Amino acid sequence: MNTIRDILQQTESAKVIANHIDYADYVALDLSVTNTDLAGESLTAAKDYEHYIQRYLDNHQAQIAFGGYNETRNLYQRSAVFKNENTDERNIHIGLDLWINEAAPIYAALEGKIHSFQNNEALGDYGPTIILEHEIEGCKFHTLYGHLSLESLKDKKVGQPIAKGEQIAELGLPPVNGDYAPHLHFQIIIDMENKKGDYPGVCSSKTLAFYLQNCPDPNLLLKIK
């Protein structure tokens, strides 16, 4: 029997943002703690990241920057969502980010139905979020779309059928999107653990093994080269 990873690898590639932009116009972006280029940058607010990412896109003659799966980052330190006195610091990103400094439509990666949705309003959180449920070859899994616009949640219904490639949302802007530079957080989740409208997109080193198993690399499906 095929595993979820087998199924994702065998599935036709999917675009989830601005499908008029070719993958040739994407560039990989490293926001990890090991990227020495970030050391000289003042990146404390959404506007700082917008400027940094736009320079990065311009320097690489690209339109979308992508990356971040299993990447340890410093950018979550401003938010109590990821660290407080009662929890381990969560700073390892387990989705894939697609950064674009403009309004952009968001599309369903696969055929499915709406599992849940909500506005995760805390600073540094997802903001408006939609989660879809899919089933292929008897295997159920989910895709999460975070940092959307508020309008994206209007007229949505749990169980609503969704076609592959159907526009389901618009990209959100700060501060509504959790106060980040505009980007889509896209994540694959096998077991939702009874959560609705939200699921961790960042984990601690202690829980990393579990989340890497439960949240496969989204690029298995997107297939960005």
Rank of each mutant, 00 (worst) to 15 (best):
D6Q: 09
D6I: 02
I7G: 03
I7N: 04
L8R: 12
Q9C: 09
Q9K: 13
T11I: 06
T11C: 03
E12G: 11
S13I: 07
S13Q: 15
A14F: 08
K15W: 12
K15C: 11
V16C: 12
I17S: 11
A18Y: 09
N19F: 11
N19R: 14
H20I: 03
H20P: 00
I21S: 09
I21C: 12
D22H: 14
D22P: 05
A24E: 15
V27I: 14
A28L: 13
A28Y: 14
L31A: 09
T34H: 14
L38S: 11
G40E: 12
G40Y: 04
E41Q: 15
E41N: 06
L43K: 01
T44C: 02
A46C: 01
Y49W: 15
Y49Q: 01
E50G: 00
H51L: 09
H51C: 00
Y52F: 14
Y52I: 01
Y52V: 00
Q54N: 06
Q54H: 06
R55W: 08
Y56K: 10
A62L: 04
A65F: 03
F66T: 10
N70I: 08
E71F: 02
E71I: 06
E71N: 07
R73L: 02
N74Y: 07
Y76R: 00
Y76D: 02
R78A: 07
R78T: 06
A80W: 13
V81G: 03
F82R: 08
F82V: 09
K83V: 01
K83M: 02
K83W: 06
N86F: 14
T87F: 00
E89G: 00
E89M: 02
R90N: 00
R90D: 00
R90Y: 00
N91G: 00
I92Q: 01
